[in-house]
Simulated assay, not measured.
Amino acid sequence: MARLLSVLVLAILLVPHPAHAWGRLGHRLVAALAWDDLTPQARTQIARLLEGEADPTLPGIASWADELRDHDPDLGKRSSRWHYVNLAEDECHYDAARHCRDGNCVVEAIRAQTALLADPSRSHAERLQALKFVVHFIGDAHQPLHAGFARDKGGNDFQIQFDGRGTNLHSLWDSGMLKAADLEEAQWLQRLRAIPLAVDLPAQPLSPPSQQWAEASCRIVLRPGFYPAKAILGDAYVPSWRPLAEEQLRRAGAELAVTLNAALAR
Rank of each mutant, 00 (worst) to 15 (best):
A88N: 01
R48A: 02
L25P: 07
I61D: 06
Y94Q: 00
H83S: 05
T39D: 09
S80A: 15
S79K: 04
A109D: 06
E53T: 12
S79V: 09
E67N: 14
C100P: 06
Y94N: 00
V85D: 03
P73S: 10
A109I: 04
Y94C: 01
N86V: 08
R81M: 13
V107Y: 06
E108Q: 12
A54N: 12
G52L: 06
H71L: 05
V106I: 15
C100F: 04
W82Q: 10
A65R: 04
E108T: 11
D95C: 01
V106P: 08
C105F: 12
D66V: 04
W35P: 14
G103S: 04
H83M: 02
S79T: 12
V30G: 09
L50N: 03
L38A: 14
R78K: 03
W64G: 13
H17E: 00
I46F: 01
R24Y: 11
P18S: 08
T39C: 03
R48W: 03
C100T: 05
A65H: 05
N86H: 10
L33Y: 04
G52M: 10
G76S: 13
P59N: 13
H20V: 07
D36W: 04
P40C: 09
G76V: 09
P40L: 07
A54R: 11
T44I: 03
D72H: 03
D72K: 03
R101T: 09
A31H: 14
T44K: 02
A62T: 10
L25A: 13
V107S: 13
D55L: 07
G60Y: 13
D72M: 00
A19I: 08
G103W: 03
D95Y: 00
G60R: 08
D95P: 00
T44M: 02
Y84A: 03
D90V: 02
L75P: 13
A96D: 05
